[in-house]
Design a protein around this nucleic acid. Sequence first.
DNA 1: ATACTAGATAAGAATGTTTCTTACTTAGGA
DNA 2: TCCTAAGTAAGAAACATTCTTATCTAGTAT
Lengths: 155, 155
Amino acid sequence: MQHNLTRDELRQRLLEGGLKATHQRIVVFEAVMDLHGHHPTPEEVYQHLRPANPTLSLGTVYKTLDTFVETGLIKRALSEEGGKRYDANTHVHNHIYCSKTREIVDFEDAELEQLLADFFSKRNLENFEIKGFSVQLTGNKVEPDKQIRITRVSK
Amino acid sequence: MQHNLTRDELRQRLLEGGLKATHQRIVVFEAVMDLHGHHPTPEEVYQHLRPANPTLSLGTVYKTLDTFVETGLIKRALSEEGGKRYDANTHVHNHIYCSKTREIVDFEDAELEQLLADFFSKRNLENFEIKGFSVQLTGNKVEPDKQIRITRVSK
DNA sequence: ATACTAGATAAGAATGTTTCTTACTTAGGA
DNA sequence: TCCTAAGTAAGAAACATTCTTATCTAGTAT
């Protein structure tokens, strides 16, 4: 359990979104935060919670995750391989996607955001109300057991 | 039929990829090209082809599309909503994704590619072999019946 | 504290999607 | 023309997602 919001804080955030703060919603929310960085599928969330919540049903997990996305509490991650992935990180950020392991790694980069914001201010979108943009790097991990990292070139 | 490759050219491209040029592969390839811009699902490809190819099976469509992706003849498009989408456009390009209609619109922008290439040359990726990057705009169509377009701001 | 009510949940059925299996067929090479 | 590796059809199987309905519960009013 590495999430850092108390249940009362979670309860608060659910209510702010106009959602009843039920036990199921609280634990599903916690699970997505606990699995942060994994961009879990509904099934993974379900398996994570099952031991401690044997009465929870998979259908509820699906529904709850989608409800959270609608409310903006979490986001859906883009994936190439089909299937739904969820992301506790609601900040503007980008993804590195490994085709081999299907891992999705977040990266935030203010410089990149600024670059893109500047760029799109020079473009006109007709008939489209833009909610956000993100950059997706696609490729393959070299060492499957080691982490992927992105760093600034030091010169 | 707005695709512009002859069957012999297609046959050629399949063979270059080390694939036997069977009738099924040729028509599936044509279908993805015909549906270019729609980023079709396997089911859509199947429905498109069924009238003229009543013996074609859905399983073959799935398998064939994946084979093409492996060979690099087509790409998979990223989607938020789960489910597989395929893209005949193998050029480097970006996508505009409408959450409302689930439409995916391609856009190519050399200036943007250059900007990103320059940017990533200033970043180091540890343990990741990058195959490509793309920008995804997410948002909603305003008029569902009209086209989405992106243009340069004229000053 | 208790009762009420809208909304949430469990459970599993229904539906939809993707993969797998097997026997049959075909493209391309000898 | 024959041979063989590879591809295909067909449907079963596995898997993923959504829907339905009866039951339950959080938050509210009493």
